[in-house]
């Protein structure tokens, strides 16, 4: 479904070049939800932006459904971290969700109906006429998810989607992501810096090294379904996984100790 091969992205050139990700390879089968975690500045966001076709890589390639990604591919949807900036404040919630549908759906009423259905699916019925700023942060991020799902994407990219909401809302949104994964066959890449979250929602967790980001580990997550915020998180398997991921992210052994951390922070968009 999604194949990333030796993907490298350097900012700048020559001696001053900063390598954000270095020969990252990963394969994601149809319908899988893969969490990507790593220390701050490991190039998580750069990886996501390369996969989205928003920036061009320096070397290597991204192949989505057999097609090399050169520009933003069809069937892609993105949920950005910063919902406050990625939802358009001049559009109502419904128009925000319906805007990407303009490309495929000519009839306005059909777009509105699809937007309302998508809003209802994320638990926000009846807010279509409001403006984004009239909603709480968690609700705004739900709108962003509704917008991403409205066009029926095959690949969903989420860039630290729940980084700026409170803990309770975050758990609700994680459960929403799990529900979407259960109900729909969308391949999902979720970038996060939250280790518990990566294990809780993921079918697999990919750990990147500190910059330049390389794949350090690729761990399958075999937690029983349906997952639950309380019971799943007390399972020995969950505890074992989160400990392992935590250890990998911290990368205490000398070989992968973060080099040039201060520079690397510049590369990650956060």
């Amino acid at each position: 479904m999604l194949e990333v091969t030796d993907l490298t992205k350097a900012y700048g050139s020559g001696a001053a070049a900063h390598v954000a990700i270095d020969r990252v390879s990963l394969t994601i089968p149809q319908g899988e939800l893969v969490s990507i975690v790593g220390p701050s500045g490991c190039g998580k966001s750069t990886l996501l932006r390369c996969v989205a076709g928003l920036i061009t890589s320096t070397a290597g390639q991204v192949v989505l459904r057999g097609e090399p990604v050169q520009r933003v591919p069809d069937g892609l949807a993105v949920v950005f971290q910063d919902y406050g900036r990625s939802l358009y404040p001049w559009l109502t919630v419904r128009d925000n969700v319906a805007l990407p549908l303009r490309r495929t759906t000519r009839v306005r009423a059909a777009r509105r109906a699809a937007a309302d259905a998508s809003l209802a699916a994320v638990g926000l019925p009846g807010v279509g006429d409001k403006y984004p700023r009239q909603l709480s942060g968690g609700m705004q991020q739900r709108v962003a998810i509704a917008r991403a799902l409205a066009a029926d994407p095959v690949l969903l990219l989420m860039d630290e989607p729940f980084g700026s909401v409170d803990a309770q809302t975050r758990e609700d949104l994680e459960d929403l992501v799990l529900r979407v994964r259960r109900e729909r066959d969308i391949t999902t890449l979720l970038v996060t810096h939250d280790i518990d979250e990566s294990v809780y929602v993921g079918d697999r967790v990919i750990v990147l090294t500190a910059g330049p980001g390389q794949v350090r580990a690729d761990l399958p997550v075999s937690l029983p379904e349906p997952r639950d915020q309380i019971t799943t998180k007390e399972l020995p398997e969950f505890v074992r996984l989160r400990t392992e991921v935590s250890r990998l992210v911290r990368g205490r052994d000398a070989a992968t100790f973060p080099r040039r951390v201060p520079d690397n922070r510049l590369a990650d968009s956060e």
Binding site: V72, F80, Y88, L99, P100, R102
Partner: peptide
């Protein structure tokens, strides 16, 4: 114009005209 707003337009494959009308002009 906020770069995130522009990226959002690109990520959802709005045409250049749609990005002008729905993103750049209102911003």
């Amino acid at each position: 114009v906020d770069p995130v707003q522009l990226d959002t337009g690109l990520a959802f494959r709005l045409s250049p005209r749609q990005r002008l009308v729905w993103v750049i002009v209102p911003a």
